[in-house]
Design a protein around this nucleic acid. Sequence first.
DNA 1: ACAGCTAAAATTGTATACGATCTGCGGAGA
DNA 2: TCTCCGCAGATCGTATACAATTTTAGCTGT
Lengths: 239, 239
Amino acid sequence: MTMTHPTATLVEDTTEVTSQTIRDALRDAIVDRRLAPGTKLSEADVGTIFKVSRTLARSALQALSYEGLVVVERNRGAFVASPSLEEARQIFASRRILEPGILAEAARRIGPAEIAALRHLLKEEERLIEARGQHARRAEIKASGDFHLALADMAGNAVLRRFMDELVARSSLVIALYGQSAISSCGHQEHEAIVTHIETGAIDEATAMMLHHIDHIEADLDLRAKTGSDLKEALLQSL
Amino acid sequence: MTMTHPTATLVEDTTEVTSQTIRDALRDAIVDRRLAPGTKLSEADVGTIFKVSRTLARSALQALSYEGLVVVERNRGAFVASPSLEEARQIFASRRILEPGILAEAARRIGPAEIAALRHLLKEEERLIEARGQHARRAEIKASGDFHLALADMAGNAVLRRFMDELVARSSLVIALYGQSAISSCGHQEHEAIVTHIETGAIDEATAMMLHHIDHIEADLDLRAKTGSDLKEALLQSL
DNA sequence: ACAGCTAAAATTGTATACGATCTGCGGAGA
DNA sequence: TCTCCGCAGATCGTATACAATTTTAGCTGT
């Protein structure tokens, strides 16, 4: 409770809410599936929740629409994206093209420290799989994506990293819509196998396993409907 | 001259200037190199030129920053992006990963009609190479990018297409900054070779040629400086 | 009861207003 | 002469105001 800044209206947790803050919070909520596909994201509501004007709320929603997480219809408003089956197919097709390349690039730069970091992620994944409760389940799904993003980080290419950011986030939406089983634990084992292959320098095998892994995720999809969820409740939960 | 809409203030060429219009015009100007890297893009100036408020101008600049064509520095303004050598390397590394995959995907869907369309593009390229003048040179550079984008279109994947959009546009910036020779005509011959290989079903050879082609473009880069250019003049030229 | 129309409410689109930050210039002092 | 300070102008960040569009509710007539 350090009152070092007398001018600040609140104690310290006010890290200046900006468009970026809102964007990140909304993205988290969408990727975490606290906001279901199709949910209406009214500018006024978002602004009110974050205590900013519609200007910033609108800016954040625009940004999310560029990432494909939100769809903005002119004069109608913004909605959490609801990818069609065709879009889903395209997203996974893109991952099949990008991820082997990222893996190859990353493998060339990975040392013992990076292997350790990946294994640490896998440990966390494992822990969450064993844990119970909805919160753990959400964290598990996010951890699964984080593995792919960590790999993208290690490729040392900001462009590829950003593309993967988008693909992983949209994949989460697709899984929310069409996934029939929760993330299967064999996905985790495939992650393990990939790391092991990288460690032993078996790049081709690591690549093959990565493709198998992506196929596996996509094979778990099925068609079904989903309804909207409540905006405010989902966001307040993240505080 | 159909005056069917008495309420409209202007005859018809007013296609309602929106954020999208401005974004496209600016992107064209940047990719066409009518706006040099580093050029300041003041919100007020952009708004004045397009006769809209700063709101829309700002929105367009934001959008361009998501594409990597513009860099926005807080409280300082927007500038035409000036990719570093490292960024340039990353952009081409990304293309080396994406384009072979796109090529493979496209090859599976390409029929006689698509081959004809590609050959038509090549004809246009050829014509521009032979033509003289700065305008022809700009058109030639754009045509070169259009070939890659046409291929991406034929892959039938909107996600990949958008990634390529960004990569081609940013490549244009990189070439503007670091390219030493103008687009060499051998680039055109490589395009020809790719189409021929696709037509004869030699996908592996087409892929190899594509990689060679990208290497070729990147090998033509060198380090040198560039100055800013005038915003208004560059934009008005496009009307 | 239901289809269609109209008016009011809600929501988005765009412009403007105002405060905050940065930039550039000129003068005071060493 | 050089450096540092401070003030004025310019530019950006955010909020608010107003216009345009969509949605909704209610009414009327069949």
